[in-house]
């Protein structure tokens, strides 16, 4: 792999990797470090990359592992980012930030109440638009589990949305 191929085929997925890392580590600076590490890893291994069929899947899975490592080491250090830091509006244009309605914030809160695995599957499907097979490979689940998690997550969110509507909270 040469630099041009790297720039044309690998770099374009950088934001996808970033969002995936961000949802695990919860902090944009650390997520950016993770993505940088992934790319450097790939570049250093560029001569062996021919053996890997799907570069994107490889990058996603390395991103996942590095992000989990980061969360674990942060947990061990017990320092890090103060609770309640809202990272999400960073990276959005001021225009978009202003558009963030109450309804969107409400969904965000609901998503956070979902069990980790259900939430991860729903994010990969509905935000990253990945196929069931891709999600199963990445999270090391069976297709059946992916479908069950997705179904449960969406069902919970729907119930909550209808409930808050009937209470007049919307």
């Amino acid at each position: 792999m040469d630099l041009v191929t790297f720039q044309n085929t690998i770099l374009p997925i950088k934001d996808k990797l970033f969002r995936f890392a961000l949802r695990i580590v919860g902090n944009p600076m650390e997520a950016e470090d993770v993505v940088q590490e992934v790319f450097i890893k790939m570049w250093n291994n560029r001569y062996n990359m021919a053996e890997i069929k799907n570069h994107e899947a490889w990058c996603m899975s390395v991103t996942r592992n590095l992000s989990i490592d980061k969360v674990r080491s942060k947990f061990r250090r017990e320092t890090g980012i103060p609770e309640g830091t809202d990272w999400r509006d960073e990276g959005l244009s001021p225009h978009k930030s202003a558009e963030l309605t109450d309804a969107v914030s409400r969904v965000r809160q609901l998503m956070e109440t979902l069990p980790e695995s259900q939430r991860r599957v729903m994010e990969l499907r509905d935000i990253e638009e990945m196929s069931y097979q891709e999600i199963a490979d990445l999270l090391e689940l069976t297709m059946e589990q992916v479908k069950v998690y997705l179904h449960r997550a969406r069902k919970t969110i729907r119930q909550q949305l209808i409930q808050s509507e009937s209470y007049g909270l919307q």
Binding site: L11, D15, F18, R19, V35, S93, V104, R158, L161
Partner: peptide, 25 residues
Amino acid sequence: PYKGLFQYFEVEQEATLSADFESRL
């Protein structure tokens, strides 16, 4: 009631790396 849900997906898709990420890399 479902408007917020689908808008949330769109908003989340917009999160991007800082502009100078590529040059630093």
